Measured scan of single mutants.
Amino acid sequence: TEEVEKIVRELQKRGVSQEEIQRILKRNGIDPRDVEHVVRRLR
C-alpha cells in the first residue's frame, strides 16, 4: 500500500535496516508479504 511505502522509504532514509523495518511494520499489524513486496520494489 501507499502508506507502507511511505513508511519504508522514511525508515530507509534514516538508515534503518531491512530486518528492523520489517519488524517495526509487523508490530504495527502490516502484512509481512506487503512489506516484502514494498522493500523489494524500493531496492
Rank of each mutant, 00 (worst) to 15 (best):
T1S: 08
T1E: 08
T1K: 09
E2F: 11
E2T: 09
E2I: 10
E2P: 09
E2Q: 10
E2Y: 09
E3V: 10
E3W: 13
E3D: 09
E3G: 08
E3P: 06
V4H: 02
V4I: 13
V4Q: 02
V4Y: 06
E5Y: 12
E5A: 07
E5F: 10
E5W: 13
K6P: 02
K6E: 07
K6G: 05
K6W: 08
K6A: 10
K6Q: 09
K6V: 07
K6D: 06
I7Y: 06
I7G: 00
I7F: 09
I7A: 08
I7Q: 07
V8F: 11
V8Q: 00
V8D: 00
V8C: 13
R9N: 03
R9M: 07
E10M: 08
E10P: 00
E10G: 06
L11D: 00
L11N: 00
L11M: 10
L11P: 00
L11A: 04
L11E: 00
Q12R: 07
Q12D: 05
Q12G: 04
Q12H: 13
Q12A: 12
Q12K: 05
Q12S: 09
K13D: 08
K13F: 05
K13E: 10
K13T: 07
R14L: 12
R14D: 05
R14T: 07
R14S: 08
R14E: 07
R14I: 09
R14F: 08
G15N: 06
G15P: 01
G15E: 02
G15T: 01
G15Q: 04
V16C: 15
V16N: 04
V16P: 00
V16D: 01
V16G: 01
V16A: 10
S17E: 04
S17P: 08
S17Y: 01
S17A: 06
S17K: 04
S17R: 06
Q18E: 13
Q18F: 15
Q18H: 12
Q18D: 14
E19N: 06
E19A: 11
E19M: 07
E19K: 10
E19P: 04
E20H: 05
E20F: 03
E20Y: 05
E20W: 06
I21N: 00
I21F: 09
I21Q: 00
I21E: 00
I21Y: 03
Q22L: 14
Q22S: 12
Q22V: 15
Q22G: 09
Q22E: 13
Q22Y: 14
Q22I: 15
R23T: 09
R23F: 05
R23H: 11
R23L: 11
R23N: 13
R23A: 12
R23P: 02
R23S: 11
I24C: 13
I24N: 02
I24S: 02
L25Q: 02
L25C: 13
L25H: 01
L25G: 02
L25V: 06
L25P: 01
K26V: 15
K26P: 04
K26W: 09
R27D: 14
R27W: 05
R27Q: 12
R27Y: 09
N28H: 12
N28Q: 13
N28A: 13
N28W: 13
N28S: 12
G29Y: 02
G29H: 04
G29P: 01
G29I: 02
I30R: 02
I30V: 12
D31F: 02
D31L: 03
D31P: 05
D31Q: 03
D31Y: 01
D31K: 04
D31V: 02
P32G: 05
P32T: 04
P32K: 03
P32Y: 05
P32H: 03
R33M: 07
R33N: 08
R33D: 09
R33I: 09
R33Q: 09
R33T: 07
D34F: 12
D34N: 05
V35M: 04
V35I: 14
V35F: 07
V35A: 05
V35G: 01
H37S: 13
H37T: 14
H37Y: 07
V38E: 01
V38W: 03
V38P: 01
V38R: 01
V38K: 01
V38A: 07
V39R: 05
V39Q: 03
V39H: 05
V39N: 08
R40T: 09
R40G: 13
R40V: 09
R40I: 10
R40N: 13
R40D: 15
R40P: 13
R41H: 12
R41D: 14
R41M: 08
R41I: 04
L42A: 14
L42T: 13
L42W: 00
L42D: 12
R43V: 14
R43W: 10
R43T: 14
R43I: 14
